[in-house]
Design a protein around this nucleic acid. Structure first.
Lengths: 155, 155
DNA sequence: TGTACTATTGAGAATAGTTCTCATTAAGTA
DNA sequence: TACTTAATGAGAACTATTCTCAATAGTACA
């Protein structure tokens, strides 16, 4: 599991290089920092990791790059309630790789689960359609997250 | 719908007065500010409303009171992605009044819906049990939210 | 391969929501 | 009514994030 690259670097580069955008060492470093599966890094953590490959990268660049990647749909940004945004590579659309998060309110540990994803996705889809019809919203995304105490924190 | 008090003031006061805590004018003012159903106020908005009843209430007191009420489970705190916490009276546990949120990414409008709550709650419950068993978490709460564009923002 | 255009960068200042500090006030109790 | 100490208001402090701006360096094209 460790060190398994979870994204296709070529694909990301291709997406980044679009509309006149450029591929740069700092952007490579950020992609690299994010590439470990199962990580849920804060901007600060991405900054630290990226600094290894690109020693004088600036924090602002990390934020800018994460914003870019999020905008392109390559990365998803989420929040587990500790007032720090977290980032991970987005699950390829509509794929079986989709997952949700289970968060420990004690230590902040984040568990990726896909155990009930089938049913959850089905219901979410149905709900989206229903809400869309009733309230006229064009639904783009959802958040579903569980909070509790992990075995270590649960006493 | 307007001005309908959605919480039982006596119950709240009783809960606040516990463990040596005291009932004070600022706390009344915050309860009052929150009392309108269907509102999703930021701390700043609670502050403004509460200031009408308690003109020299401080913003810090509003935050402290909201934290207290949240801790007591009387109020729930959530976030619609604009980096400002929002607060509303908590739905009485296990009651049919429970609702979720549909958020417009354009204008920030928040729609409370309960249309699919039955099924959602059932699945959430089942998922909670499954996750609890598999990962050993004691699950306390969940977040489920949909994002999209409302009729006005959807062009 | 060299040059020009301009997207991107790093550094630090600026911003905004929230929390903390501390001297003062006042709720609840006896 | 007096006492204990929880709660308060004001503003400073904190923290994640965004902005500013001059300097740098991808990329396209000659």
């Amino acid at each position: 599991m460790r060190n398994r690259k979870d994204h296709d670097p070529d694909c990301c580069c291709r997406r980044i290089r679009g509309d006149g955008r450029r591929m740069t060492p700092p952007r490579h470093a950020v992609l690299d920092a994010l590439s470990e599966r199962g990580e849920h890094l804060t901007a600060e953590e991405v900054f630290k990791k990226a600094s290894r490959r690109c020693p004088n990268i600036g924090l602002a660049t990390v934020y800018r790059t994460l914003e870019l990647l999020t905008g392109l749909g390559l990365v998803s940004k989420f929040d587990t309630g500790d007032d720090k945004a977290r980032y991970e590579f987005a699950d390829p659309a509509g794929e079986k790789g989709h997952h949700h998060h289970l968060v420990c309110s004690g230590c902040g540990k984040i568990v990726d689960y896909k155990d009930f994803i089938g049913e959850e996705m089905e219901l979410l889809h149905k709900t989206e359609q229903g809400l869309s019809k009733k309230y006229g919203f064009k639904i783009k995304s959802h958040i579903i997250q569980f909070f509790g105490l992990c075995p270590d924190c649960g006493r």
